[in-house]
Design a protein around this nucleic acid. Sequence first.
DNA 1: AGTTGACATGCAACCGGTTGCACGAAATGC
DNA 2: GCATTTCGTGCAACCGGTTGCATGTCAACT
Lengths: 345, 345
Amino acid sequence: MPTHGTGRGPGDAAPTIGEVAAAAGVSRATVSRAFGRPQMLRPETVERVQEAARHLGYVPNRVARALSTGRFGNLALVVPDIANPFFPPMIRAVQGRADRAGFAVFLGDADEDPAREEVLLRQLSTQVEGFVLASSRLTDERIRAHAERRPLVLVNRDVEGIPRVLIDTTRAVGQAVEHLHELGHRRIAYLSGPAGSWSNRQRRRAVKRAGDRLGVEVLMVPAGRATFELGRLAVPALLATGATAVVAFDDLVAQGVLAGLSEQGVGVPAGLSVVGCDDVLATRTYPPLTTVSARSAEAGAAAVDLLAGMLTPGTPLADTRLLLDTSLVVRVTTGPPPRGGPRRP
Amino acid sequence: MPTHGTGRGPGDAAPTIGEVAAAAGVSRATVSRAFGRPQMLRPETVERVQEAARHLGYVPNRVARALSTGRFGNLALVVPDIANPFFPPMIRAVQGRADRAGFAVFLGDADEDPAREEVLLRQLSTQVEGFVLASSRLTDERIRAHAERRPLVLVNRDVEGIPRVLIDTTRAVGQAVEHLHELGHRRIAYLSGPAGSWSNRQRRRAVKRAGDRLGVEVLMVPAGRATFELGRLAVPALLATGATAVVAFDDLVAQGVLAGLSEQGVGVPAGLSVVGCDDVLATRTYPPLTTVSARSAEAGAAAVDLLAGMLTPGTPLADTRLLLDTSLVVRVTTGPPPRGGPRRP
DNA sequence: AGTTGACATGCAACCGGTTGCACGAAATGC
DNA sequence: GCATTTCGTGCAACCGGTTGCATGTCAACT
C-alpha cells in the first residue's frame, strides 16, 4: 500500500472505515450508517461503533464520501480583498457557521480583479457544493452563469434571481447627511470606492438623494480601490472641492483621509468633518470616526444559512433578498463647518 | 440522478472516463494514461483519446483522482486569528504563491483555540496535500503528530524536525530596547501576547536579554490575546509599573495602548514611549507608531515554496529552518522619558 | 527460424466511503 | 402455533478515477 509523501512507520495511516468496523465487530456498512444515519441502527450498536471510532481517532474521509454521494461538504467564500478590515469578521462568521452546518470552507481572494475572481470560481467549483460571493466585481451575466452551475449566494451584490444578502446603508448614509446638515454643512463630498462595487453605487446614490432632499450640494470625488493610501492621496482633490464635510466609501479610506488631512494641517472636525462606513475601525482611528454601522459578520452568517438551505434537498428555492439595516454611529470626526467657509489649502 | 440547482436537460452529467473510453474504443486505463502519462502511449492513441474527450467535453474528476492518488491539488493554511492584521498579507501571499504552483488553498481560522485548531487540521487533512500552520497554538507533540500524517510547514513556530520559517524579531527588538536606552529610559515594560505564541516568547526573551545587557529594568505585563481592546485595558497595569516606555507584543495591542493612554490623558511620547511589533498598521495609528518590521507576506510565500518542495517527489527532505531578519522602524511614539520620572495616574 | 526484449494496451484491484437489496431474528397478529 | 411484519445488519455493487502486472505484438538479434 502506498503511503503519502515521506515514508512512515506502520499503523500511522489515517484509520479507515474498515478498521473501525473490525474493531467494533460490525460491517463497514454499519460503521457508515453509525455516522450517516444512526437512527437506522440499534442505539447500542451506534455507541459501540462510536467508541471504536473514537478510540482509533477515526474521521470519515470526505473525499471518499464526496465520490459516492456527490456531496463535498465544502463551500467557497470569495472576497475581493482580504486585507480590507470589512472582511475578516465576515470570513470568521462564515467559517463558524459553515462548520456548524458540517461544511469546510475554501477562501478565495480575488484581489479586486474580475478575471482572477473568474479563475477562482472555476477552479474551486470542482470541489465545493456552493459559493458565497462577497462584493463580487463580476458582471451580472457572469454571476448568473456561475449560479447556474452551482448554488451561489451573494453578499452586497443585487442580482435578481440570485439569493443575496445586502447590507443596506441607504438609511444610515441618509442619517449621516442629515446629521451634517443639522451641523450646518451645505456642501459635502462623497469619496467613492471601487468601480464594480454595489455598495459604492448604493452609498453614492444615497448621499446624492439625501443631499437633494435637504438642499445640500454633493460633490463626487473618486478614490478607486478602498485603501488607506488612496484615501490619503485623495485629500488634495477633496479640499479642492470646497466641501466642508466628506462621506467616505468606507472606514479604510476615511482613515486615509484623516491621515492626509493631518499632514496638510487641517484639523478634524474643525477644518473638515469626516464620515466613514462599515464601522470596522471603531475607535481605532484618531480622532474616533463617525461612521455607518456594517454588520458584516451577520451578513456572512446569513449567507451561509441561505446556502445551506439551498443545499438541503426538499427546500423550495426562493428568490431571497435579505436586507440588513444600518444606522449612523456618531463619534467625534463630525462637527460644525469652519466659520467663514472651508479652509483652502 | 440529482442535478445541481436549476434543472438542466438530459445528458448534463459530466462525462466519465468510461464514456470517453467507449467513444475512443480503448480501455479506461488508456484514457487515464492519455491524460496522466501520455508518453506511455502511442502518440496516435493519445490523439484519438483526446479527440474523443474533447468531443464529449470530458474533464477528469479531481475528487476521484484524489481518492486514488492522494494528490488533491489543495493545501491548507491555518491561522489563529484572521482579524489580526498581521495575517491578511500572509494569506494573500500564500494564495498567490499556491496557485502559481497549481494549488488551491483552504483557509482555517483557529480562533486562538488549540482544540479548534486540532479539529481544523483533522477535518482538512482528508482534502489537502499539505499544511501551512501559522503561529500555531498547538503543543510540539501535536504538531509533530500532524506532521507525520501530512507534509506541514510552520510559520513562526520553532519545532525541531519540522520545516519552518521564522520571522526573527530578536535583533529588531534588541534595537528597540537600545533605542529606548539611548533616549534615556531605564525602566521599561513588555506587554505580552498570547500564551501559546512562539513570537511572544521570542520577543519577551529578546526584551529581557537586551534590558539585562544595557542595564534597563524590564517589567512583564500580561495582555493575553492580541487585540486592540486588551491593549487598551492593560494601560492601568502598565502605568502602575512605573515604566517610562513599553514594548507591546504587536501593533494591534500597541494601538490599544495608544487609545488607552489617550483616555487617561497621558501623551505619547511625552508621558510614555510606545513600541509595536509587526509594522502592520504603518502610519495608521496616531501618533504613527515606532515598531518592528515583520515581513509576513514573505514568510507566507516562503512557507508555500517549502511545502511545494516537500510535495514534489524526489526532493530530499531537509530540516529547514528559515529565518527572516527584521529591523526597527522609528516613527514618532518614542521619545525621551518624562522629566521627574514617569507620570503616575 | 527461434529467442528476446521493448513497447502498447488491457485486466482487475484498489482508494474509502455509501446504499439498494437480501436475509435472519424478533415482535406482532390471528 | 404459524404466518406476517418489522427491524437491524451484512453483502456487494458502485462512485470515477489510477496503477501493478499480465498479455500480446512486432522488431531486432543470434
